[in-house]
């Protein structure tokens, strides 16, 4: 090496430059990691925690809703027992409306459709899209089921009600407020034969899914004598939609009351 007197004098500036070099190189790696996985930034863990916290909160609130519903039923029972025919009739009507709106567990004959992602891996030149079940597939199936006479539908035990969203959130599908993943079990109560026929007819759901089924996505349709469908767990509060006072028909008024 060089002379002892010169050693320190040339090494220290180089060491400082090396420090800058280290910073630059680490920045490059961090940047690349961020570009590859946009969600890999350090606030990712915070976000995961937030999602878990919110889901816990949601579960607590669902329990609260359930308790409130029980309390309401208790009051109704008390009112019904008190005897008057009018109260009895109103209670009966309320129960019917609840069932129609999806707030009660229901059972009856129907079909079970099971959708499974493909177990094959896409070849390098193939699009991954058709190897998986997407939110639109579920939404299309639900639509077809309604159209062919289904009276109650659930997807992975999430009840489909009038304002149920079915949408894609990252790798999972969000139905109502629950994240669900494959395999998807869609239950429908209704005329089983007609529903099965509607799904299998030319241009029907099976036809619509043929690009996916050819890639290994599996769909099974089974007719069943008894399908159980759980109640809608959330609550519906209409904050903005108010009944149009010009419309005095009692049919439109009662469901709105029932939902409260």
């Amino acid at each position: 090496m060089s002379k002892n007197s010169g050693r320190g004098s040339w090494q220290i500036p180089i060491a400082i430059t090396c420090m800058l070099l280290g910073i630059a190189v680490t920045m490059m790696f961090k940047q690349q990691a961020q570009a590859d996985f946009p969600m890999m930034s350090s606030n990712r863990n915070d976000m995961i925690k937030m999602v878990h916290d919110l889901e816990q909160q949601k579960q607590k609130l669902e329990v609260t809703i359930e308790e409130q519903k029980k309390a309401i039923r208790g009051y109704e029972a008390a009112a019904g027992d008190s005897g008057t025919d009018m109260l009895e009739a109103m209670k009966h009507q309320l129960d019917t409306l609840r069932t129609e709106a999806g707030y009660t567990d229901v059972a009856g004959p129907g079909v079970t459709v099971i959708l499974k992602d493909s177990s094959k891996r896409p070849a390098p030149n193939e699009d991954e899209f058709f190897f998986r079940i997407h939110d639109v597939d579920i939404a299309t199936l639900v639509n077809e089921l309604w159209a062919s006479g289904a009276e109650a539908i659930s997807v992975n035990s999430q009840r489909i009600v009038i304002n149920t969203p079915i949408r894609c959130v990252g790798p999972t599908i969000l139905i109502n407020t629950a994240r669900i993943g494959p395999p998807y079990e869609v239950n429908a109560i209704g005329p089983a034969e007609e529903i099965e026929g509607a799904l299998k007819m030319t241009g029907g759901f099976i036809d619509y899914m043929s690009p996916s089924t050819s890639k290994g996505v599996r769909i099974t349709i089974a007719r069943k004598d008894s399908v159980k469908i759980p109640a809608f767990k959330g609550s519906m509060i209409l904050r903005h939609a108010k009944q149009d006072k010009a419309d005095k028909s009692p049919e439109t008024k009662k469901p709105a009351e029932a939902k409260k």
């Binding site: 320190g8 090494q11 220290i12 180089i14 060491a15 400082i16 430059t17 090396c18 420090m19 800058l20 070099l21 280290g22 910073i23 630059a24 190189v25 680490t26 920045m27 490059m28 961090k30 940047q31 690349q32 961020q34 570009a35 930034s41 350090s42 606030n43």
Partner: peptide, 30 residues
């Protein structure tokens, strides 16, 4: 000293919060 400098630099950059990472558009500059 040189290796020490390099290590100090890497640790400094690792310790920086992710908000301090320059945007990807700066990658050629870096």
């Amino acid at each position: 000293w040189i290796v020490l400098g390099l290590i100090v630099g890497i640790i400094t950059a690792l310790a920086l919060p992710s908000s301090m990472i320059p945007p990807i558009s700066c990658s050629t500059y870096i």
